[in-house]
């Protein structure tokens, strides 16, 4: 009854397909893969191909479309004063999430697994903000960020502390607003990543720690040499999810500032909405969507390569 994870340490890191042992017929492969693949290709992949086509149109989504070749892309890259700042903010969201949120989540996950006997309640509770509708989250944080005169918590506290000069209209000052939103995102999804990484840590079989203990590796030392390397595959999932989440961040922006004031908090997803729905430039909006898809694909590949390297190094 050896746990299946007993040999887990070096194994997963090798390139898979060469090692795959199951030689099966084409029909079996089809039976396993096709239902999933067809549904996905038909309803997600095909529409995106259509989007790539739409991106070459000058079309309001209703009337007659005109082919304009790559004009939309050209305009997007060279003549759209909102586009690049939106890209920058999108990556800021992703960056803060990866550099602040994920390490913190990992830290908390390690602490929980070290100190808490019945972790369910704690992990579940930390997860709560994810479950609540963004509309609620937005309203809640508005009461935190509001100007003191409207009962905003932070500003009232600052004034009580005599730090009047530190007060801001957090969500409506162009330079501050995006950071205010980033903080909300970091807070809201912290529990999400704690959950994922905690799951990962729980997944590490206990008997790996046994020999280490004999070598005198215990506590944080054990975490450094065992938990961290072992958590890498799960951490990767966290990284990818956080990146996707940042690129898709739309709801939160819409409920807090709607991209304002004057585009100061627009990100790619909200810019796309403004263009295709509000400005009714469906073709141009599709071009932005395509950019999003390509960036995401590139990022996923880069993240994969990066982690393969990290995994190899630990190997």
């Amino acid at each position: 009854m050896a746990p299946p994870f007993a040999a887990v340490a070096p194994e997963p890191l090798k390139e898979a397909s060469a090692l795959n042992v199951l030689k099966v017929s084409r029909w079996t492969i089809a039976a396993f893969v096709l239902p999933c693949l067809l549904l996905y290709v038909g309803l997600v992949f095909a529409p995106i191909i259509v989007s790539f086509y739409n991106a070459t149109l000058n079309w309001n989504g209703i009337g007659v479309a005109k082919h304009v070749g790559l004009d939309n892309f050209h305009r997007m890259f060279t003549n759209d004063s909102v586009f690049w700042p939106s890209v920058r903010r999108t990556f800021m969201l992703a960056g803060f999430s990866m550099l602040v949120q994920l390490p913190l989540a990992l830290f908390v996950a390690i602490l929980i697994s070290r100190f808490v006997r019945k972790p369910n309640f704690l992990v579940s509770s930390y997860f709560m903000p994810v479950i609540l509708s963004v509309a609620v989250i937005g309203q809640l944080w508005k009461t935190i960020y509001n100007p003191a005169s409207q009962g905003g918590m932070i500003n009232q506290i600052l004034i009580k502390l005599g730090l009047d000069s530190w007060t801001h209209a957090w969500l409506s000052e162009p330079k501050v607003a995006i950071y205010a939103i980033i903080v909300i995102g970091l807070w809201q999804y912290l529990g999400y990543h704690i959950l994922i990484q905690f799951t990962g840590i729980q997944n590490i079989p206990a008997d790996i720690y046994e020999p280490a203990k004999i070598d005198g590796a215990e506590g944080f030392k054990a975490d450094r040499y065992i938990t961290l390397p072992m958590i890498v595959p799960i951490f990767k999932i966290s990284v990818v999810l956080s990146f996707i989440g940042s690129l898709q961040s739309f709801d939160l922006i819409m409920v807090t500032t709607a991209g304002g004031p004057a585009h100061a908090t627009d990100v790619l997803a909200s810019h796309m909405y403004n263009i295709s729905i509000l400005s009714q430039k469906y073709g141009y909006g599709s071009a932005i969507a395509c950019f999003l898809v390509v960036v995401c694909l590139a990022a996923t590949v880069i993240i994969n390569l990066l982690f393969n390297r990290i995994e190899k190094r630990y190997n």
Binding site: Q150, A169, L171, S172
Partner: peptide
């Protein structure tokens, strides 16, 4: 100063 502080949010 006609409008309230933080009007854009």
């Amino acid at each position: 100063g006609a409008f309230q502080e933080g009007a854009t949010s």
